[in-house]
Amino acid sequence: MPLIMRTMLKVLRVPNTTILITVLAFILGCATVAYAIEPSTFRTWFNALYWVMTTMATVGYGDFYAKTWIGKAFSLFIYVFGIGLLSLIIGKIIDSISTIYKHWEAGKMHFHGKDHIIIINWSKKAQYAIDEILSYSPASHIVILDESDKHPIVDRQEIHFISGDPSTEEALDKAMIKQARAVIIFADTRIDEPALADGKTLLIASSIERLHPDIHTTVEITQDKNIPNFRHAKVNEFVLSHDAVSRLAVRSALQQGGSEIIHQLISREVGDDIYEVPVRAEWKTYRDAFQGILERGATLLSDRGDLGINRKLNDPIPAAARLYVVADEATYRLLKSQA
């Protein structure tokens, strides 16, 4: 028994390429020998190859079979060694698939794609963000980059996970940062001190800016006093962790029903939403855009962050304008298709 175990362990350590070449050589060699032994039975070399494969796979259709005692003895040889070799290669394939899945689950595999969204630092808020992204665009590719060692959403095969330090070039390269469309950095919930959490977020944002200056970056900040530092790092947008919740609670208390409106505007799954629409050639002023959008059942909200454009309707629309409207999805698609 020890001899058999040692032999099996040696075989399992043989490189996959060597095993594959050995099995192919065995199959082709057996087909050649079988055809040489009984050419009248198989008629062509391909038929002999077909018989060898069905014999090794234990299928045995019976349309071809050895008729001489030499052919039958050779069949026994294939039974003993061929089935074992085929089982070995099938086991290797299953083992390789299992290894690939384990590496995927542990975040060790590179992401291959482009125009994806990278979510950095896993938390409940990151999960909500992913749900919101997929509700808006189900075909979006998402990459989670976190220092944990296990995929946080193993039942979502379309979401890739990379384990590593998000501030390092190695981890960001695995996430294909240079081909990504946007990055969202959440505060690390494993850090209790707000200043340290913001410091880590700033370090990550700086690394991203160095590798891909043109990418759109959104970060979560725990202390508003650190906003100037993030502006210096050229972060596109930032969200204060506790600020939005506190302000929403106050408005709900002082202006009842206001929270419901805000909830609809920030959720893709409830009510109307905020969409960016392209500027049409016939819109010369904000008034033209306001009336054109209103006729189609939507409301002009802002030009970028300027919410006061409805008080300057006679102003011309600048070339760099980005108009946002409040509408349902059907109206938004209509506005987009007519641009």
Rank of each mutant, 00 (worst) to 15 (best):
W104C: 11
L85C: 00
D63H: 13
G82L: 05
A57C: 06
G84M: 04
T58Q: 12
T99A: 13
L85W: 01
D63W: 12
H110I: 09
A73V: 05
L76K: 12
G60P: 01
F111T: 04
K102N: 10
E105L: 10
G62Y: 09
G91D: 00
F64P: 04
Y65P: 02
L88W: 02
Y61M: 08
M109E: 14
G62L: 06
Y65I: 04
H112Q: 10
I70K: 07
K108E: 12
K67T: 14
Y61P: 14
S75F: 14
G62W: 08
K67V: 13
A66D: 03
I94K: 10
Y61H: 10
Y101N: 11
S96H: 15
F64Q: 01
D63L: 09
F77D: 05
Y101I: 11
G60K: 13
I94Q: 12
A57H: 05
Y65A: 13
S96L: 13
L86C: 01
I100H: 11
L85Y: 01
F64G: 00
K102E: 14
W104G: 13
K102V: 10
F74G: 02
D63S: 09
Y65S: 13
T58W: 10
H110A: 15
V80N: 02
H110R: 08
S75E: 05
I100F: 15
S96W: 15
I83G: 00
H103C: 15
I83Y: 00
L86I: 00
H110E: 07
S87M: 06
F111W: 11
M109F: 12
D63F: 10
F77R: 07
K67A: 13
S87I: 06
I90H: 04
L86F: 05
I100G: 06
F77P: 07
W104F: 15
K108P: 15
M109H: 11
M109Q: 14
V59Y: 06
L88G: 00
I100A: 11
A106D: 14
M109G: 08
Y61S: 14
G71W: 01
F111G: 07
I90R: 06
K67N: 10
D95H: 09
I89R: 04
H112R: 09
S75K: 04
E105T: 11
